[in-house]
Design a protein around this nucleic acid. Structure first.
Length: 443
RNA sequence: CGGGGCGUAGCGCAGCCUGGUAGCGCACCUGUUUUGGGAACAGGGGGUCGCAAGUUCGAAUCUUGCCGCCCCGACCA
């Protein structure tokens, strides 16, 4: 993409309402624009990151055996009345009436709808297990939206729902998602720690939140230090390994403040005790027959008897992750994108647009990086160097190639690594090679 | 939902107390000189001062009501 042809409204000054780094940088880097409290327009740069995160979440769900679908944002109140949640959910749910005075709502989650869908088709234990998910916009009328996309009222969520024949099978499904979540966050460049959690209005008896540690997090967390740097488990699909990963992670102490047990925490060796703040980026639940019982979502078992299906649900806040990743990865100059979610693979800075030699060299590198699948952003604007550097640092692409007449005389360009600030001089051909190799395994 | 605060040009703000020509910086446009880490100078455009009512000869400024937004706390992907 040529910057002269892109919509990137960067701000030099920070809008007054933004107090935390991710919000400030998302506004300044032209990623989002607030339309009203907790509701955001996703500008091209922000949208690109959102889609990249969404795609990683999708791929990991698919690997975990979940099947993608799409449910509507607007739901009938009937499903919710059947489960009793229409009254239980409270004013966070946005209730709407259509022209016929029928009660509708903008979905804050989809257990009720999918359970209704599921029961209308599935009759036999032979059709189980099933896991379905969608990535869809939700609306929760928060009392106090804040921190930009971290706590919006409208937000993009991946929510998966599982259906199993009995509790034992359902727990295995739960472990499978647990492992998939660890792999997902690792790909996003995040260190997420699973913690025992409250089940909230969704209910159930087994639930974990995944939190990334950040000073600006809304939750207070307590955990064993070793959990933070544990590597992603990787891919396998047998009951024994799934269970052992789950047990390995849950045997060490980790809880948010509402589930915190000071006595238990005290048993963690003092040098391993970590109390910090965290951002919740995922929440998984096993809730058994909480919905299948009232909605009579049953299948006939091998013994000819009807049983309620055992369910779980698994949420990832996709739009929140955009902010969460920035909280975890930025410096005083701007964002530092992990390679897996960067909106563009590399930035090309032309220090003298209009200079025939510089233009030609930039154009050549632009073509070669594009051909290599790097998806570069070429700053071909007529601005001064300093402005281009500051802008490129702000939007945080992992690599910058700085090209100007002075270097070209000696046959070199400068390659800057955003995360470290390290600058290396090399030939244009080597720059393309270097960046391509850095992305090996990522693209 | 309790407490606090803010709404004046695209962004950041001053002006309001003590009513009388709407201002500054950045951004934007034109020109000149510049150009290797957010250039300088000159000129220029852009605002029903959140909305409504009231007081007044006169309201950004005073009064009342409404709307919107932010921050701190209690609740949540």
């Amino acid at each position: 993409m040529r910057l002269s042809n892109y919509f990137l409204p960067v701000l030099k000054e920070t809008p007054a309402e933004a107090t935390i780094a991710s919000h400030r940088y998302m506004l300044r880097a032209g990623m989002v624009k607030q339309d009203s409290a907790g509701i955001y327009i996703w500008l091209p740069l922000g949208f690109k990151v959102l889609k990249k995160i969404e795609q990683i979440v999708r791929e990991e769900q698919n690997k975990a055996g979940a099947v993608e679908m799409l449910m509507p944002t607007i739901q009938s109140a009937n499903h919710w009345k059947e489960t009793g949640r229409y009254d239980a959910y409270g004013p966070e749910m946005l209730r709407i009436k259509d022209r016929g005075d029928r009660e509708l709502l903008y979905g804050p989650t989809n257990e009720d709808m999918i359970t209704d869908m599921f029961r209308s088709y599935v009759r036999s234990y032979k059709d189980l297990p099933q896991s379905l998910y969608h990535i869809q916009w939700k609306f929760r009328d928060e009392r106090r939206p804040r921190f930009g996309v971290m706590r919006g009222r409208e937000f993009l969520m991946k929510d998966a729902y599982s259906f199993d024949i009995d509790a034992e099978a359902a727990r295995l499904t739960y472990y499978r998602q647990f492992v998939a979540y660890l792999n997902t966050y690792a790909r996003l460049g995040l260190k997420a720690v699973p913690m025992r959690a409250d089940t909230g209005p969704i209910g159930g008896d087994l639930s974990h939140e995944f939190l990334i540690l950040a000073e600006t997090g809304e939750s207070e967390v307590f955990c064993h230090k070793d959990l933070v740097d544990m590597p992603a488990p990787g891919y396998f699909d047998n009951a024994e390994d799934l269970k052992s990963v789950f047990e390995q992670r849950t045997s060490l102490y980790a809880a948010t403040d509402e589930k915190h047990d000071a006595e238990e925490f005290a048993k963690v060796p003092a040098d391993k005790q970590l109390s910090a703040r965290g951002i919740e980026v995922g929440h998984i639940f096993y809730f058994g027959d909480k919905y299948s019982e009232p909605m009579k979502a049953q299948v006939t078992g091998a013994d000819g008897k009807n049983v309620n299906v055992m369910m779980g649900s698994y949420g990832v806040g996709v739009s929140r992750l955009v902010g969460g990743i920035i909280e975890a990865s930025h410096d005083e100059d701007g964002i530092i994108w992990p390679k897996s979610v960067t909106p563009f693979g590399a930035g090309i800075i032309n220090l003298k647009s209009g200079d025939a030699e510089a233009d030609a060299a930039c154009e050549d590198i632009y073509q070669k990086l594009s051909a290599a699948g790097i998806d570069p952003l070429y700053d071909d604007k007529n601005d001064r160097g300093g402005q281009k550097f500051a802008r490129m640092d702000l939007i945080g692409l992992p690599y910058q190639i700085v090209i100007g007449p002075r270097g070209l005389k000696e046959g070199i360009v400068e390659v800057k690594t955003r995360a470290t600030g390290e600058k290396q001089n090399m030939s244009p051909a080597d720059a393309v090679k270097f960046i391509s190799s850095e992305y090996e395994g990522v693209i």
